[in-house]
Computed example of a mutant assay.
Amino acid sequence: MSLSETAPANPSGRRLLRRLGRPAGRAAIAWVPLAAVVCGLFTGALASRAAWETSRPQPDRAEAAAVLTEVFPGHDLGEIDTPPALFVVYGHALRLGTVKTLLFGDGGEYQESATGATAFGAPPVPAEQIVTAARERLTGAGWRVYGPQVSDRVSCADKFCATPQAVTDTALTARRGDTILNASISSQTAVDASYLSAELHRAPPPLVVPAGVLGTVLGAVASWLFFGWVSRRTEGRRGRGAVNGLIGVAMVLWWLPVLLSVPLLLRHHLGEPHPAWHPYWEWLGQPTASLFFLVGAVCVLLALGLAGATRRVATPETTAD
């Protein structure tokens, strides 16, 4: 058997496969994996948001009225408010005018909407009785009822708080199918305050999880290849330090909100009942830290421009040529 018969069929293809995604340089070995993972997370969050569009619309007035009449009979909840979109910012649908709100500190107000109603004045019966009756009715109607969350506070009847009053607030959560009920029952007796408020909204649709997982994997692989190419493109060339510095800044801006948000949200989930997890993007600190994300993206684009424009450092051999 000759040597030509035992040689690889396509040696250039093998070399290409070995080079694909290979970080070049000590700094790149650190930031390429970080960039690939965080970009995968962002891509997964975007895919999960797209999958949210397969959700059923939020309950309309007829559906909400049927549920609230069944759970809270005899309570005047007034007019039922329906949301303008699946996700809202301060109760309004996302539009160009709300981008400033998202970027400058109020990104956390981008939340899933809900259909709700409120009853004002003093409760007609003790608040504890309202909670007990509501839980019994929900259980009987096939809802999964979670443990109530009780908190105490002090309310003032006037601005000088001459007659402080102890008030107990009870949060009630239940789920049936893809519909979640959140209700708050208060023992307050002020005429202009609410003693009962209830909201109905949808749980995440089934496609949210697989879309998020697939988006994360594909985004991480594509980002590994892209950032690996950037590191190899600048290997031995002028501007390599600037490229590493820009991407390093981007990694800090992208990872910091993630590292802060994950433990906070995890503690929040463990501290009170949640029929559904918070959306994927909130675990990444988005869009609360959307300004951080935007500045980081600009840094990556500048690094990409520098990588494309870099030239090899002149060596004695190339100068002689």
Rank of each mutant, 00 (worst) to 15 (best):
P263F: 06
L291R: 01
G239Y: 00
T132E: 09
P316Y: 07
F292A: 13
T163Q: 06
A289P: 03
T288F: 12
V262N: 11
V89W: 01
R19L: 09
A27Q: 11
E136T: 14
G212A: 03
T173H: 00
K159E: 13
L270D: 09
G40I: 10
P206A: 15
A242W: 15
F120V: 07
M251L: 13
E136G: 07
Q149N: 00
S48V: 05
T43D: 07
V208E: 06
E235W: 02
R135P: 08
L260G: 10
R61N: 11
P126F: 12
S223H: 10
P275T: 08
L3A: 04
G140T: 07
T54W: 04
V298K: 02
T82C: 04
F292Y: 15
R312V: 09
R267I: 06
N10P: 00
A320W: 01
S186N: 09
A166K: 12
A162D: 14
L291G: 05
V37T: 10
G245W: 14
E272R: 00
V209S: 12
S290T: 14
V221G: 06
G305M: 09
T115H: 01
T43A: 11
C156L: 14
G121N: 08
P57R: 02
G107S: 12
T82A: 07
V71N: 01
L181F: 01
R19Y: 04
P210T: 11
R49N: 14
M1H: 05
T101Q: 13
R237E: 08
A51S: 14
V295H: 09
V67D: 04
R238F: 11
S186A: 08
A141L: 10
G241P: 04
A9C: 00
E112T: 06
L41G: 12
L225I: 12
V71Q: 01
I185T: 05
P257T: 07
L68W: 07
R237W: 05
W52T: 05
N244G: 13
A190L: 05
G108L: 05
A66Y: 05
A45L: 10
S155I: 10
P287F: 07
E79M: 10
P8M: 01
A297G: 13
R153C: 04
L103T: 03
A289N: 15
G308I: 02
L3D: 12
D106T: 08
L96M: 15
S155P: 00
S151R: 00
W31Q: 06
P316N: 11
S187T: 12
S231M: 11
F87R: 00
R312N: 12
S55Y: 03
A114F: 01
G241R: 11
